[in-house]
Amino acid sequence: MRVVHVVTLVSDDGAYGGPTSVAAGQLEECAARGHEVTLVALWRGAGPAPDRIGSVPLRSRPARSVLPGRFTGLMHPLLVGDLWRAMGGADVVHVHAGRDLVSLTALAVAVLRRRRFVAQTHGMVQPRRSAAVRLFDRVYVPLLRRARGCLVLTEQERRAVAGVVGENGPPLLTVPNGVRPDASGEAEHRPRGRQVLFLARLHPRKRPEAFVEMAALVHRRMPDARFTLHGADEGALPEVLRLIAAHGLEGVVSYGGALEHAEAVRAYARAAVYVLPSVDEPFGMTLIEALAAGTPVVCTDTCGIAEELAARGAGVVTDGSPRELADAVCGLLADDGRREALAAAGRRAVAEAFSVHAVTDRLEEIYGRVCQAPRHPPGRREPLRVGG
Rank of each mutant, 00 (worst) to 15 (best):
V95F: 10
G45D: 10
A310V: 08
R221E: 11
E36Y: 02
M214K: 01
S130L: 07
H261S: 15
G45N: 03
V298F: 04
G320N: 05
A267G: 06
A215V: 03
V6W: 00
P208W: 08
V298D: 09
G346D: 09
M214S: 05
A351W: 00
R128S: 11
T302F: 09
G379D: 06
D51S: 10
A90M: 01
L173Y: 00
A23F: 03
L172W: 01
V111Y: 03
Y16Q: 12
M75V: 14
L363F: 06
H357G: 10
L67I: 14
R116T: 02
V297L: 10
R115Q: 13
T174C: 14
D233L: 12
A216C: 02
P374N: 04
R59C: 13
V196G: 10
F198A: 00
A328H: 01
R348H: 11
E324F: 07
A246P: 14
Y16C: 11
Q120M: 11
L237N: 14
H189T: 13
P208M: 01
A293I: 04
L78M: 13
P57F: 07
A210R: 06
H203S: 05
S184Y: 08
R59G: 07
A269L: 06
A271N: 07
E340I: 14
A225G: 10
A210C: 02
A106N: 15
L39V: 11
H122D: 03
D280P: 02
R115T: 10
G17R: 05
L83W: 02
E29Q: 08
E157K: 11
L291A: 15
R220G: 02
V80C: 14
G231K: 01
A106L: 03
A262S: 12
L144K: 02
A24S: 09
E234T: 14
E340A: 13
D233P: 11
A23M: 07
R266C: 04
V252S: 09
R347W: 01
P378I: 08
P322H: 01
P296T: 11
G248Q: 14
T105M: 12
R221S: 05
G45L: 00
P296G: 13
A258E: 01
V370L: 03
S355A: 09
R52C: 13
R220T: 02
P142A: 13
R348L: 07
E260H: 15
A32P: 06
A49Q: 07
